[in-house]
Amino acid sequence: MADKLKFALAVLLLVAGIAGFYLLVEQAMILRVLAVLAGAALAVVVAWQTEPGRQFFGFAKDATTEAKKVVWPSRKETIQTTGLVFAFVVVMAVFLWLTDKGLEWVLYDLVLGWRQS
């Protein structure tokens, strides 16, 4: 029950920060943005105190650790793969165009005889 109240408070703080952005319409933009950031920061601090919040931040930390383990492709590999995908798309476009025109010729000229001059 306490976690639900804390989470509701976190949502309320976030909404208050966003509302502050609109209520401070007469103020400088930096103050309006700081109101949103302060509301978001306070919401994160309160959410961190809940069990689901701790689980989420643990998951986010683990996801970051796993993302650092990924071996990203080099620039050369990326360009080669992109070139292959582009070539495949062009080949498929030509194939589908030829198939469409072939079916059009068979149906309209041979079967139905609509295009005979």
Score class of each variant (00 low, 15 high):
11 V>W: 06
97 W>H: 05
104 E>W: 14
71 V>T: 11
56 F>I: 13
7 F>M: 11
41 A>W: 09
94 V>A: 14
66 E>G: 07
31 L>K: 05
50 T>P: 01
3 D>M: 01
3 D>C: 01
78 T>I: 13
70 V>I: 14
68 K>P: 01
40 A>T: 07
80 Q>L: 08
99 T>L: 15
7 F>S: 03
66 E>S: 12
78 T>H: 03
32 R>K: 12
64 T>V: 12
26 E>K: 07
96 L>R: 06
59 F>C: 01
63 A>G: 05
75 R>H: 07
89 V>M: 13
9 L>H: 00
111 V>N: 07
15 V>S: 03
1 M>T: 05
82 T>F: 14
90 V>A: 08
71 V>S: 09
12 L>T: 15
38 A>P: 03
37 L>T: 13
9 L>A: 09
108 Y>A: 11
108 Y>V: 10
104 E>Q: 13
24 L>W: 06
37 L>M: 14
2 A>Q: 15
26 E>T: 12
104 E>C: 09
50 T>F: 04
1 M>S: 12
115 R>N: 10
103 L>A: 11
115 R>Y: 05
3 D>N: 02
90 V>E: 02
69 K>Q: 15
103 L>N: 12
104 E>R: 12
61 K>P: 00
38 A>V: 12
109 D>P: 00
5 L>S: 05
45 V>H: 02
99 T>R: 11
39 G>I: 00
47 A>E: 01
77 E>C: 02
88 F>Y: 11
38 A>H: 03
94 V>K: 06
18 I>A: 05
112 L>P: 00
36 V>Q: 00
57 F>Q: 08
33 V>Q: 06
26 E>F: 06
9 L>W: 01
84 L>C: 05
45 V>N: 08
93 A>I: 07
63 A>I: 05
67 A>I: 09
113 G>V: 05
40 A>C: 08
61 K>R: 11
64 T>E: 08
76 K>H: 04
113 G>T: 03
